[in-house]
Amino acid sequence: MLRADRTIAAALAEGALQPIRTEQDWLEQAGLRFSVRWVSSLALKDRARVDTVTARRPDFNPFLPPEPALTVAPLGASHCVVLNKFPVIERHLLIVTRHFEDQCAPLTAADFAALASVVGAHGGLGFYNGGRIAGASQAHKHLQWIPSGADGVARFLPPLEEGAALDNPALPWAHAVVAVGEADWAGPASAGEAVREAFHRACARLGMPCAATPMPPYNLLLTRAALVLVPRTQEKWKDVSINSLAWAGSLFVRDHAQIDGLRAHGPLAVLTAVGRPR
């Protein structure tokens, strides 16, 4: 993480990285607590999308190659780690394929190994927005990571059973949870294979293909304790975009009116509307 911190400091100094400015509120329902943040960088991200269409060629790809000032380090032969130019949380990292692969393509052994190497070394939460309907903002395949303390996924998990694919009966949306054992993190290769196997078990429980081209939309979350898989049916609830972090209790909005809407409707109903009913 020292290299990431040095890259962050340098990128902020030269303006390549947008600083985070947030306001935070909390919503509670059925004993679950959701963080709701208004993030100024989301508005900047919208502006950047418009600029991409109007000032650059329509097929512009920010990851091919990534900005040098945002590039942290290579990660194996197939990936590199870059800073999220529009971070929603401090130390928000992207794990990007060096060559173009579509965000709706199946995750490969190299993808699982890359994500597992970061989670295994640093803990925190790894996640993947499987396509636009799952909240992905770029078509180039990129996994993501945020540090420990920035998510609350543990409070959504049922009691874990080693090797079993199960769910939390208190949650109204379809999902699967597979425990990842401490022994699985002994090395990057074994960790990547253990995560890949957990993903396959989660897909089987949900009746979802694990290697279709394209894959159906889904959100994937990974900690050192468990893998969580959530199939998706739509990108937004009204005008609020929902990505993987929502299933870890973190929602992001562009203005205070959206917070009022989430509070009135209830976060459990919001997530059920964009997921798949049980």
Rank of each mutant, 00 (worst) to 15 (best):
E28R: 14
E28F: 03
E28S: 14
A30V: 04
A30Y: 01
G31K: 08
L32K: 14
L32T: 14
R33E: 15
F34G: 12
S35Y: 00
R37F: 03
R37M: 07
S40W: 05
S41T: 15
L42K: 06
L42V: 05
L42I: 05
K45F: 01
K45D: 06
R47H: 08
R47C: 02
R47M: 05
A48N: 07
V50E: 09
V53K: 11
V53E: 09
T54F: 04
T54G: 03
A55W: 00
D59F: 04
D59V: 05
N61Q: 03
N61P: 05
P62D: 00
P62G: 01
P62K: 00
F63S: 02
F63Q: 02
L64K: 06
L64I: 04
P65E: 02
P65D: 03
P65Q: 02
P66R: 03
P66K: 03
P68T: 05
A69K: 12
A69W: 07
A69L: 08
A69F: 07
T71Q: 14
V72M: 06
V72T: 07
A73E: 12
A77E: 13
A77L: 05
A77N: 08
H79Q: 08
V82I: 07
L83E: 05
N84E: 05
K85Q: 03
K85F: 00
F86R: 03
F86D: 05
F86M: 04
V88L: 14
V88I: 10
V88A: 10
I89V: 12
E90Y: 02
E90H: 09
E90N: 11
R91G: 10
R91D: 13
R91Y: 03
H92L: 01
L93M: 12
L94F: 07
L94W: 04
I95N: 14
I95K: 13
V96Y: 01
T97C: 12
T97P: 09
R98I: 05
R98N: 07
R98A: 04
H99S: 15
H99F: 07
C104D: 08
P106F: 00
L107R: 09
L107V: 08
L107N: 11
T108K: 10
T108F: 01
A109C: 12
A109S: 15
A110V: 07
F112Y: 14
F112D: 15
A114M: 06
A114D: 13
L115F: 08
A116C: 10
G120A: 02
A121G: 15
A121P: 14
H122S: 10
G123H: 01
G123Y: 00
G123C: 01
G123V: 00
G124D: 09
G124W: 00
L125M: 07
G126K: 05
F127Y: 15
F127C: 15
F127Q: 15
F127R: 15
Y128C: 08
Y128M: 06
N129C: 10
N129G: 13
G130F: 00
G130Y: 00
G131M: 09
R132H: 10
R132T: 11
I133M: 08
A134K: 11
A134Y: 07
A136P: 14
A136S: 15
A136Y: 07
A136V: 09
A136R: 10
S137A: 06
S137K: 04
Q138Y: 06
Q138H: 09
A139R: 10
A139E: 11
H140Y: 04
H140D: 06
K141S: 08
K141V: 04
K141A: 11
H142P: 05
H142T: 03
L143D: 11
L143Q: 11
L143C: 10
Q144I: 04
